[in-house]
């Protein structure tokens, strides 16, 4: 990956942190995007402002991009050296990408392994989940997390749930329902029922509905 070039006197391209969000205690942490931040507190506050405006979260982790190792099946073939990357030994979290379905998240964290370094952790992740579409590992020691104290969870995450005017359901049905307009012949069906890629019809994915 191309590294940022510090070309300006006041380069504000602070380190990138990958953000992992847990929607509820029963759900896995999921990789949802990244933020730029100067330190752990800055990373977590920015992550909340960018990724948790709605609807629900109970915890956030942030991990510097430099501490994360990822690979796709294609990369394991083109650059197998990635499995030899050395680093600190210890507990590594493992994330995998499970499908090509439409999704908001890159990988779900599915467990952790004891490893001699990131390359070893990636190798173990590959062995345990050979059919994954991407693997991601980082040392537990590298993560920073929001405070699990219930009061902090409440103050950080409850407003996103309580501000119901940010949900489209808040507005209900405005005017006649689209179905009624369709039955009266005013509302045509979809223009392009079969999206195409070039001259080929696009494959019908088992896409998750947009929530």
């Amino acid at each position: 990956m191309t590294q940022p070039q510090p070309t300006q006197p006041h380069d504000t391209q602070w380190p990138r942190w990958e953000v992992f969000k847990q929607d509820s205690e029963k759900r896995p942490y999921q990789a949802i995007g990244s933020v730029h931040a100067g330190d752990p507190d800055h990373a977590l506050v920015t992550a909340r402002n960018v990724f948790v405006r709605r609807p629900a979260a109970v915890s956030l982790w942030a991990v510097r991009e430099a501490d994360i190792l990822t690979a796709t099946p294609q990369e394991l073939v083109s650059t197998p050296d990635v499995l030899g990357v050395t680093g600190v030994a210890g507990l590594y979290h493992v994330g995998i990408k499970k499908s090509h379905k439409r999704s908001m998240t890159f990988v779900d964290l599915v467990g952790a392994v004891q490893a001699t370094g990131p390359g070893d952790a990636l190798g173990q992740a590959h062995e345990q989940h050979p059919d994954a579409l991407a693997w991601l590992v980082f040392p537990d020691a590298a993560k920073v997390a929001t405070d699990p104290d219930p009061g902090t969870v409440e103050s950080w995450f409850a407003p996103a749930t309580e501000k119901t005017y940010k949900q489209q359901q808040y507005y209900g049905t405005i005017g006649r329902h689209v179905g009624e307009l369709k039955r009266s012949g005013q509302m045509p069906g979809r223009v392009n029922e079969h999206p195409h890629v070039g001259d080929q019809p696009a494959v019908k994915h088992n896409e998750e509905p947009v929530k």
Partner: peptide
């Protein structure tokens, strides 16, 4: 949201789910 590049598609799925509120409040 259905495009071929993973990170763009994921950003779009997230944006669409939030953008419907913008549409509804205006309507």
């Amino acid at each position: 949201a259905g495009c071929s590049y993973g990170p763009y598609s994921r950003a779009m799925v997230r944006i669409c789910s939030e953008e419907t509120f913008h549409h509804k409040q205006g309507k």
